[in-house]
C-alpha cells in the first residue's frame, strides 16, 4: 500500500508542473502586458504601481525565467499582494476563506454519497419499478436544471414566503449572543440550501452511474453463484454485489470534485457566503489578477488532492490495484 501511495504521489509531480504552466499561460493571455490593463482600468494607478507590477511579473526578463521565478515564489506560498484597496497578501486572503468553502464541499460530498448510492442501488435492484421511474425523472431534471435558478426559487419559497431559512451569509446578526448549541443550529440553517444545491448535479449524475454499475454487476456469474448457494437476497445484494458495483463509482466521485469546487463560485455569490468562490467572483469583477491566479492554482491543487484521495480509496477497496 505504501508503495502504491508513493507511486501516486510521484505521478502528481508532472500534473502539478502542468497546472502551473497552464495558469502561467492564462496569466499571459491578456492583450498587452498585465500592467497595461491594470493601469488603464485604474485612473489612480501611477508610475509607481506600474513599476511595482513590472518588477512583480518580471516582464523585462525572458518568458521561461518569468515562469521559473513565479513557480519559485509559489512554492513558498508567495502569491503576491492583492490589487484591491486592502493591499493584503493574496495567500492570507485565500486561506481565511478556504475553510468555509471546504466545509460546504465536504458536506455536499457526504450528501452525494449518502443519497446517490441508495437511490442507484434501489433503482437497479427494482428495475422498471415505480421507484426506478421516479428516480429516473429526478436524475434527468437534476442534471438539466440550472442550479442557480433553483437557488432563486428556493430562496423565494423558504426565505421570503415561508421564512424558514435564512438566505444570505453563514451567521445571523445576533450570532454572538447565541449559546453554542443554538449557534451551531444557526450555522446549519444557513448551510442547508447551499449544501443541497451544490450537491444536486453530482447527486443526479452519481445515482445514474450507481444504477448502471449495479445493473452490470447483478448480471455477473458470481452473483448467480452466490444466489445458487442459498445466500439470502440481502447478503447477495449488499455484500457481494454492492462492493463490486461501488468500485467504478469511486473514480466518478473523484471526477466530480472539480465541478463541486467550480460551483462554489455560483452558490457563494448567490447566498453571500464569505468563501473562496465569492472571493474569486469579486476578484474577477475587480480584475484583481494576483488573487485570480492564486485561486486558480489552489482550485487545481484541491482537485488533485481530491483525486488522490479517490485513488487511495479505490486501492483500499480493491486489492487487485495495490498488488499490481
Amino acid at each position: 500500500m505504501l508503495k502504491y501511495l508513493i507511486k501516486r504521489l510521484i505521478f502528481m509531480v508532472p500534473l502539478l508542473i502542468g497546472i502551473t504552466i497552464i495558469c502561467f499561460v492564462v496569466m499571459h493571455l491578456a492583450p498587452g502586458s498585465p500592467t497595461d490593463i491594470q493601469t488603464q482600468m485604474n485612473p489612480k494607478a501611477g508610475a509607481e504601481l506600474k513599476e511595482r507590477l513590472r518588477s512583480m511579473y518580471e516582464l523585462d526578463k525572458p518568458l521561461y525565467q518569468q515562469y521559473i521565478s513565479w513557480v519559485k515564489r509559489l512554492a513558498v506560498l508567495d502569491m503576491g499582494i492583492s490589487f484591491s484597496l486592502d493591499r493584503r497578501p493574496v495567500v492570507d486572503k485565500i486561506l481565511e476563506r478556504l475553510p468555509i468553502t471546504i466545509l460546504i464541499n465536504i458536506l455536499s460530498m457526504i450528501l452525494i454519497i449518502g443519497a446517490a448510492i441508495p437511490i442507484g442501488v434501489l433503482s437497479a435492484v427494482h428495475q422498471d419499478s415505480l421507484f426506478d421511474k421516479i428516480s429516473a425523472v429526478f436524475v434527468f431534471v437534476g442534471f438539466s436544471i440550472p442550479t442557480f435558478w433553483l437557488a432563486l426559487l428556493l430562496m423565494i419559497l423558504f426565505g421570503v414566503n415561508l421564512g424558514w431559512l435564512p438566505i444570505s451569509g453563514i451567521r445571523s446578526l445576533n450570532y454572538e449572543y447565541l449559546p453554542p448549541f443554538q449557534g451551531l443550529i444557526d450555522l446549519i440553517k444557513h448551510l442547508i440550501l447551499p449544501v443541497v444545491l451544490s450537491a444536486l448535479t453530482g447527486l443526479a449524475g452519481l445515482s445514474r452511474y450507481m444504477r448502471s454499475s449495479m445493473l452490470e454487476v447483478i448480471r455477473q456469474d458470481y452473483i448467480t453463484t452466490a444466489r445458487a448457494k442459498g445466500l439470502s437476497e440481502m447478503t447477495v445484494i449488499y455484500k457481494h454485489a454492492l462492493r463490486n458495483a461501488l468500485l467504478p463509482v469511486i473514480t466518478i466521485l473523484g471526477l466530480s470534485i472539480p465541478g463541486l469546487i467550480g460551483g462554489s463560485v455560483i452558490f457563494e455569490t448567490i447566498f453571500a457566503i464569505p468563501g473562496m468562490g465569492q472571493l474569486f467572483y469579486m476578484s474577477v469583477m475587480a480584475r484583481d489578477y494576483p488573487v485570480i491566479m492564486g485561486i486558480l492554482v489552489i482550485g487545481a491543487v484541491l482537485t488533485l488532492l481530491g483525486n488522490l484521495i479517490a485513488d487511495v480509496s479505490y486501492a483500499l477497496a480493491d486489492p487487485r490495484i495495490r498488488v499490481s
Binding site: 492583450p31 471526477l255 472539480p258 463560485v265 474577477v284
Partner: peptide, 19 residues
C-alpha cells in the same frame, strides 16, 4: 489529465477576466 484538474468554471472565469 492536467486540464481535468481545473474546475472548469474557475478556468472559464479566469480567462474571461483577462479577456
Amino acid at each position: 489529465d492536467i486540464m481535468l484538474c481545473f474546475p472548469a468554471f474557475f478556468l472559464i472565469l479566469a480567462v474571461i477576466a483577462f479577456l
